[in-house]
């Protein structure tokens, strides 16, 4: 693991230089203080949710004694709901969307960064503008679009997870291509030139050189796309209509929408479990995100 290496390297530094305590405080220690404060800010509402999830009659206001009861009823009750189906749906939809987004955006960013062609600026500006469109107000159009498509390709019609993925992919270029584009621009062109002299085609340069160097941003975009898709419910609840196709966000939203008997305890437990895949994914991708470029060829 990259960070293990980093830690080891850090220890070596300590052994070699033996910095005095005051210097450690000045250069490293204060960072821990900030870290602790930031984490407190992060975690407080999450502890609150965790506490609510452990309280069978939990609510979102009024139960201010954290961890008054520790009871896993809510978690076991999840078993009798559609929760696991939703979780699987969410994972499928978010994973496919994330992979598709990364592939499409990386290709687009490569084209924008490495080629000069007519309409390039216009396309870039167009991409930027398209994402400004308030999708929330366009749900009627999405509904009717999928209705028509469904007449021809039933798998891409309403109430289909694949259709939802397609809608998400439609929005993929807007945001993420730019993020990628910025990073692609930081990769020196000399690398491409050298490969070109070696006889590489554009596809070979893209796959074997560029993609490896931009691995961190691929990981970041993949993660961002996964998370955004995972928590999206405004479009998802227009597209998905029956509980067996719901994603977690839609399912949980439906629980929360119950004005009278919202099962807050169940809801909180569901939210806690729902966050696990994101945390795991982040753990897995962290080495790419923060360690990727440091040993790459860019430096050398």
């Amino acid at each position: 693991m990259a960070s293990d290496v980093a830690t080891v390297r850090g220890q070596q530094t300590t052994l070699e230089h033996k910095p005095p305590r005051s210097r450690w405080w000045r250069e490293v220690g204060w960072r821990h203080v900030i870290g602790v404060v930031a984490i407190a800010y992060c975690l407080l509402p999450l502890l609150y949710i965790l506490s609510a999830s452990l309280n069978p009659g939990g609510s979102l206001t009024g139960s201010n004694q954290l961890f008054k009861t520790i009871d896993f009823t809510n978690y076991s009750d999840l078993g009798s709901t559609d929760f696991s189906t939703w979780a699987v749906n969410s994972l499928i939809v978010a994973s496919v969307t994330a992979v598709g987004t990364v592939l499409m955006c990386a290709s687009a960013a490569y084209a924008f960064s490495r080629f000069r062609f007519t309409g390039r600026r216009a396309t870039l500006t167009g991409l930027l503008l398209v994402q400004m469109f308030p999708q929330t107000l366009a749900f009627v159009a999405i509904f009717l679009l999928l209705l028509s498509i469904g007449d021809v390709f039933p798998v891409l019609g309403l109430n289909s997870r694949l259709a939802l993925i397609a809608v998400y992919l439609g929005a993929a270029l807007g945001t993420n291509a730019f993020l990628m584009y910025g990073f692609f621009n930081t990769i020196p062109r000399e690398l491409d030139e050298a490969a070109k002299i070696d006889g590489a085609t554009h596809a070979q340069i893209f796959v074997t050189i560029i993609l490896r160097l931009v691995a961190p941003i691929l990981a970041v975009v993949g993660l961002l796309s996964f998370i955004a898709t995972y928590g999206e419910f405004v479009i998802a609840r227009v597209v998905l209509q029956t509980p067996e196709n719901f994603t977690l966000a839609v399912g949980l939203y439906n629980w929360a929408a119950d004005e009278r008997n919202a099962p807050w305890g169940l809801f909180a437990a569901g939210a806690v479990i729902a966050s696990v895949p994101i945390i795991v994914l982040f753990q897995f991708l962290q080495r790419y995100i923060v360690g990727g470029l440091t040993s790459g060829s860019v430096k050398g």
């Binding site: 009627v140 509904f143 009717l144 209705l147 309403l158 609840r237 209509q241 029956t242 509980p243 939203y253 439906n254 929408a257 119950d258 004005e259």
Partner: peptide
Amino acid sequence: VIQKASTDIGNDFITSVPTGE
């Protein structure tokens, strides 16, 4: 039997019925 959120069910009914969905 299909579950709809109580906040949406009435309006979804209005939107969906003319489309046959």
